[in-house]
Amino acid sequence: MPTVAPLDLDGHCVSAVFLDDVPHFAMADGTIHRLDHGHKWQEVHDGLLAATLDQPKTRLITGGEDGKVFSSAGDTSYLLAEAGRKWITSVASGPQGAIAYATGKTAFVRFGDGKVKEFQHPRSVEGLAFSPKGMRFGVARYNGATLHFPATDGKPVELEWAGAHTGITFSPDGNFLVTTMQENALHGWKLSDGKHMRMSGYPAKVKSLSWSAKGKWLASSGAQAAIVWPFSGKDGPMGKAPLELGTRGNAMVTAVACHPSQDVAAIGYDDGMVMAVRFADLKEVLLRRPGKGAITSMMWDREERRLVFGSETGDCGVVDIAG
């Protein structure tokens, strides 16, 4: 039986992650809490808006209302960048210690050596992600996405699709780019030929995406089930129906986190419930009963034994799958 070690915090959890097997919880008030032989925390931002893991998965990169970007783990935290008074609305981590962050219409890349490069856009930068291959990052924007090659002075690649694109992710093999949209849909591009993929039919906005092991599937929130699109074929999900996992009649899926090696997804709902569901036979295991508020973030540990979760009401915790 799975057991839950709860951690009740105040406020909205932006990101719940494992850093070197230690559960960390980045909260909207700017504090980062951890369960490391007891409950400990540090104050990092005055208002934390965005968080992502660095590529070795040992530090948390965060952006805040204070216009600052920090790298944090345990009780250490150092300032990576500052961008004036404006909010840092998204962050992403890339190869060789590079990070990207955005404020308003500007995206910045800070390379591992501390050099910063600026990328202006005609419209706001809504989302950022690095490609898994090479020094390349994507920007979600109004009417499409822009791909930059920050290590060179090459021209960016523009991918157009009408509508407001708010979030962005590359498939683990780097072949596909998928954006979340202001409307209740995802949009995808096959990068080799620019072919479009429309993934629609959601009753709500999609706010959480997670690629399964080896990028065979893309799980998404925004419906009463986790909607899981097949990406193993060369054209991605085109012409194929998605899986619907963990369907509940009275709750919406708000967060998804695919298992690191198996075709299993952890699914978080707006009432705080968390389930694990296997793709092959849709078998469900309850990991956490409903809590105070919607699940916002989840991550599996390296041993594939524990799941950390955060919620918008601060009732966070760690599930031990084996109990």
């Binding site: 209302e65 008074r85 404006k86 909010w87 308003g104 219409k105 419209r123 706001s124 109004y142 009408a162 509508g163 407001a164 949209m181 202001q182 409307e183």
Partner: peptide, 13 residues
Amino acid sequence: IVESDEEIYEMNN
């Protein structure tokens, strides 16, 4: 006080 760039989005409908 939060500064924000006016960003008008047409819904894709």
